[in-house]
Nucleic acid binder design. Structure first.
Length: 428
RNA sequence: UCCGGGGUAGCUCAGUUGGUUAGAGCAUCUGACUGUUAAUCAGAGGGUCGUGGGUUCGAGUCCCACCCCCGGAGCCA
């Protein structure tokens, strides 16, 4: 059996391909079947006089998305999508499809999400998910190439990452367990073992967010580097994000074209990215008429205003302590703030990275845990990391779906994960 | 949780100041056609107008309550 992507190497030969019917067009004595096999599309041409009765009848049974097996001669033809077509000698329907719910036309989002298991077959969805897969591979390649060790962190966890209110809880043999909302604390623990580590997996947030940027289950990659400060951290981030964009451009040009992505918007994404401090950002926003006060976290509108001046992702660094998580290191140059950064993607895609230098001083970390009224016992093992050879270290988390949404130019991140979990959607 | 929009055929939608038997396109089925590109043409079947109540001679349309969906805010990646 031949894969459709290789048809060009078999011109003049008789081959067999198998796949699913995208559309059929019948004309009485000649019929066209467009076949998708997962590697490409091929137009199959049936001429009534030249095929058996069984094969001619098979085209009538080949309803949209039926699985079929087709044998025929490969020939080059400009009229065929892809440039090659199959002059059919034999076709059999191996899995006839019932009336297919998704038609080649506009559908509502709710309907499509109800049929996500079928929607995956559509060309835009195939393209978006293929870019996702490429970006995920690029993530591994980037870190592997730089000597990082991958650490798989637990999904079921007893300790808490950041804020208790946004955790999913579940019963764990009579005890309460939480679905991880970050692997960070665990990669910090692995840092003294391997120096440079990262985790990559699903994370869970029970936030009641209904926006195009939110999922309750999303994938995050979180590197952690020993002896790296906040500046080193941002340099790693811009190198990393640039590499992901470059890989998608290099290896998914067809997918980006199907997605109608204007690639000129991302082709120049290369280090360095602009950096502004939180304090400067507030001044700038106030000059533009924002009501924001120093100490407030940046709202979605503020982020949009800040990014509109750039066509690169923008770092906003050193937020007020109160707006950020307990584990971030105090900024020695302005103790109201912490050494951290958010990376805001252009074109309104929002925050794709949150990173920071970690607090490595035991007493200050303890103080912050108490200030935030977090359960101290649950963090005893995390505090041990400061007791036994504490060291400066930094890391960040990059949201895969938001990043891929930006790279592909898709409006909503739910299209960039195979089976999105949203506030009101647990099926399929 | 708050603000805004919406729910009519399998799907996407139209439906006038309340008025006879609720429409269109696509999909499905039947027929015609030897080169289509979301083929075209002719015909057919297909409806609990989100749910419950109310006003009215008469409600898809007006009123009340509830359910569900979408978008945004907050929160975050």
């Amino acid at each position: 059996m031949v894969e459709i992507k290789d048809l060009g190497q078999h011109v003049g030969e008789t081959v067999t391909v198998a796949g699913w019917v995208e559309t059929t067009r019948s004309h009485g004595k000649v019929a066209f079947v467009v076949l998708r096999d997962g590697t490409g599309l091929a137009q199959c041409v049936l001429v009534k006089k030249q095929v058996s009765e069984a094969t001619w009848e098979a085209h009538g049974l080949a309803t949209q998305e039926s699985a079929v097996s087709v044998t025929g001669e490969v020939r080059a033809d400009d009229r065929a999508p892809g440039g090659y077509e199959l002059g059919v000698t034999e076709m059999t329907v191996t899995g006839q499809a019932a009336e297919y719910p998704i038609q080649p036309k506009e559908h509502g989002v709710d309907f499509l999400l109800d049929h996500r298991h079928l929607w995956l077959r559509s060309s835009m969805q195939r393209s978006g998910l293929r870019v996702r897969a490429e970006v995920e591979q690029a993530i591994h390649d980037f870190f592997y190439g730089r000597g990082f060790v991958r650490i798989d962190t637990p999904i079921l966890t007893g300790s808490i990452g950041e804020h208790a209110g946004t955790l999913f809880s579940t019963d764990y043999f009579g005890e309460k367990a939480y679905l991880a909302q970050t692997g960070q604390l665990y990669v910090e623990a692995a840092c003294p073992a391997f120096r440079k580590v990262y985790c990559f997996g699903p994370t869970f947030r029970a936030e009641k967010s209904k926006t195009r940027r939110h999922l309750t289950e999303f994938w995050m990659v979180e590197p952690e580097v020993a002896f790296a400060d906040s500046e080193d951290n941002m340099r790693l981030q811009e190198d990393f994000v640039s590499y992901l964009v470059e890989r998608a451009l290099e290896r998914c040009p067809e997918e980006l074209e199907i997605l109608e992505r204007d690639t000129s918007r991302i082709e120049h994404v290369k280090p360095p990215f602009p950096r502004i401090s939180y304090t400067d950002a507030v001044t700038r926003l106030q000059a533009k008429g924002s009501e924001i006060q120093w100490g407030d976290d940046l709202g979605a509108g503020d982020e949009a205003v800040l990014t509109e001046d750039y066509d690169l992702p923008v770092f906003v660094a050193n937020y007020p302590k109160e707006a950020k998580a307990f584990y971030m290191k105090e900024n020695p140059e302005d103790t109201r703030t912490v050494l951290c950064d958010d990376l805001l993607a252009p074109e309104g895609y929002g925050e794709i990275i949150g990173g920071s230098q970690r607090e490595d001083d035991l007493d200050r970390l303890l103080e912050r845990i108490r200030e935030e009224q977090l359960p101290e016992e649950a963090y005893s093992w995390y505090l041990d990391l400061r007791r036994y050879g504490t060291f400066p270290h930094s890391g960040f988390g990059l949201g895969v779906e938001r990043t891929v949404a930006w790279i592909t130019g898709r409006h909503h991140i739910r299209e960039l994960i195979p089976f999105p979990r949203l506030m009101n959607r647990l099926f399929p």
